[in-house]
Write a protein that binds this DNA or RNA. Structure first.
Lengths: 370, 370
DNA sequence: CCGCTTAGTCGAAGCGCTTCGACAACGCCG
DNA sequence: CGGCGTTGTCGAAGCGCTTCGACTAAGCGG
């Protein structure tokens, strides 16, 4: 493995000159630069990142702290990661993921205090996230993906849950739905301070109230079984419901199963809209789910650029940005059968639907199997 | 940030003594050790990983090279990652994930030649994986998760696809199925050299043949739509099929949707077994999928231990190990309705099933909605 | 033509740690 | 009791790089 010494010798210049060619910290004449670059190429020289980091006090490594629960990493997070990675690489940094959640504070402390990371991106941020304090104590510049309860003084990027929920509600209300139930994460998750669950709950309540409708929220664990239970509970509390808005990807599938078990069709009897769901997952369902798609890749890019600004300018000004999810209408949402009669004959319901719509087409397809 | 100098001064010993306390490279008396440890605690000393790495030529960082396609990381991979992480941390190493696929060879080369990693774990290994060569050239010890076509001279851990497929086939044959179709990944994926797709294909053919049955394999893209198409194609080629074995998680859901659309029930009309599928995903389906659960966490642990043996012993002997997935019977598999008549009256089919089995119970539950 | 800035290069001093050789002090053996 | 292997500690020499001060050679306005 060639060192800078070798390059310098071969190019007949001093080590510092080679360094300046690499870093651009001082001007180097074109002739010298060419000699040095040629020597590097011939020796297949690669700078030793550790030595460089030690001398410059900058590792050029960014950490993405990404809790991994047993469910894995969804397409949304993946988009975020790829967006962040390409932004980091473009800036000459490495982006490494570390599966560190709020439970692994010791490992985080090690990572942060050992000066391995120039900066950190925090995913799955909780309202009171101890990781933020650990990083601050260690003096590691940080950008949050999500928000703590009081994010003042912290840079973050996050989904604009308020606009997202409102867009979803508007979509359903626009289709004619009045009885809409919101399936959220579990009560425990909410109590534990999971921001998205809280924020969407509040926005849902506000949006429904503004439309003059009564908000009904049902919590559900992140499991299919719990989704089934949630639907049962929803139908008990609101037998006339015509639409479900869900924040809980795992529960949605159970919910769809339960609808089918009860002989209710989607979207004829009940429309289903899933929040913050990737196209790939939405397409798994039959019919495919109308969903709010998250701007994952853009969030990742913005987060890295913000972080680098902090890293390179020794803590620049804070930057806070919210991006909404965009509505993608698929087969699971359509006009309600009739405002009050959810048990009407299917043929009758068909009469009042515009025959050319996607929803109508799907409904017809679904009926074929009856 | 305190340095080793500070600790040495405070403990009234030399820097090297402090170092020996930390590394244990030479014996230190208990009294001295205590003084040093006390000083470290008082100063909240954390060694600088970069300096340590530079001096010792060992970064104590292991890389997990994990391609991220748009679908994200499944529960299987997650289990692997957590298993690997805890093994690494237990050994005093950091384990960082890097989303590097076969397309990011340049980034991999940077990472490998810059001496940041002591070793690498390679996931989603292809039969001819260029990453292996890059790592070998850079002299980075590597353990594969999966296998290249000719893995001689390389350490790896992998799923024992042969035993896994045979277990799945045995399960179905044991239930009485004779017409079993295998839904694999796409022809492109196979052509591209995706090991699991090839190996399971071959094992399926062998297992079926040994049972005196005719193997039928249908390729499918990793999407629900393609799963639907695959089922349609399967029914065209083998109208009497009673069971589907699937290697393709995304396609399974489309396949289930298509079964339902055609009025075929699971497992009454068709049994479905999914390969290398996590319990979490299996539970998303209705009924929950009988599946082969991968030994993810154990694979991760073994991989790291193998890698560390290479790292610490300057390339020890190679280690190759295969672990099978274990069968978990859920609601999607049961005895076939009748060997030849797939359109028989459901009540008649019930006559010949053992009434106490889980499968029978589920079938009864399913029929309730008719 | 003089002093001044600017471009271009070099040497040396670290960055914070590991590791090697040296050495003192201590039993322990015959 | 003299030589010898252990044990415990120290000082110094790096690891491969960045960066600072210094120096030379132009370039330039007055």
């Amino acid at each position: 493995m060639a060192t800078m010494q070798d390059v310098a010798r071969r190019a007949q210049v001093s080590v510092s000159t080679v360094s300046y060619v690499l870093t651009g910290a001082r001007p180097i004449s074109q002739a010298t630069r060419d000699k040095v670059l040629a020597a590097m190429a011939e020796l297949d020289y690669q700078p030793n990142a550790l030595a460089r980091g030690l001398a410059s006090r900058r590792s050029r490594i960014l950490g993405l702290l990404l809790p991994m629960d047993e469910r894995g990493i969804g397409a949304t997070e993946t988009a975020f990661v790829t967006g962040a990675t390409s932004a980091a690489v473009a800036a000459g940094y490495h982006l490494v993921l570390s599966p560190i959640g709020v439970g692994d504070l010791d490992e985080l402390r090690r990572l942060a205090s050992q000066r391995i990371l120039d900066g950190a991106l925090l995913m799955e941020v909780q309202l009171h996230d101890p990781r933020v304090d650990v990083l601050r104590e260690a003096g590691v510049p940080t950008v949050l993906i999500g928000r703590t309860e009081d994010p003042s003084g912290l840079s973050y990027v996050d989904i604009d849950f308020d606009r997202t929920v409102r867009a979803a509600v508007d979509h359903l209300v626009g289709l004619g739905h009045r009885r809409i139930v919101y399936v959220n994460h579990s009560a425990d998750t909410i109590a534990e301070g999971y921001g998205p669950a809280l924020r969407t709950r509040d926005s849902f309540t506000a949006a429904m109230t503004e439309h003059g409708l009564t908000p009904l929220m049902i919590p559900a664990e992140d499991s299919a079984a719990s989704g089934r239970a949630a639907l049962a509970s929803a139908l008990r509390q609101e037998p006339d419901l015509t639409a479900v808005l869900a924040m809980n990807e795992s529960a949605v599938f159970g919910l769809l199963g339960e609808l089918s078990t009860r002989g209710l069709t989607v979207p004829d009897d009940v429309s289903v809209v899933s929040m913050v769901t990737s196209p790939q997952v939405a397409e798994l369902a039959t019919p495919a789910l109308t969903a709010m798609t998250s701007p994952g890749s853009a969030l990742g890019r913005i987060a890295v650029q913000t972080l680098l600004r902090h890293v390179e300018s020794g803590d620049g000004e804070i930057h806070q940005e919210l991006l909404p999810c965009v509505l993608e209408v698929r087969g699971s949402s359509g006009p309600p059968r009739t405002p009050a009669a959810s048990t009407t004959d299917p043929e009758a319901a068909d009469e009042r639907s515009s025959p050319g719509t996607e929803a109508a087409r799907r409904r017809a397809a679904t009926r074929r199997r009856a």
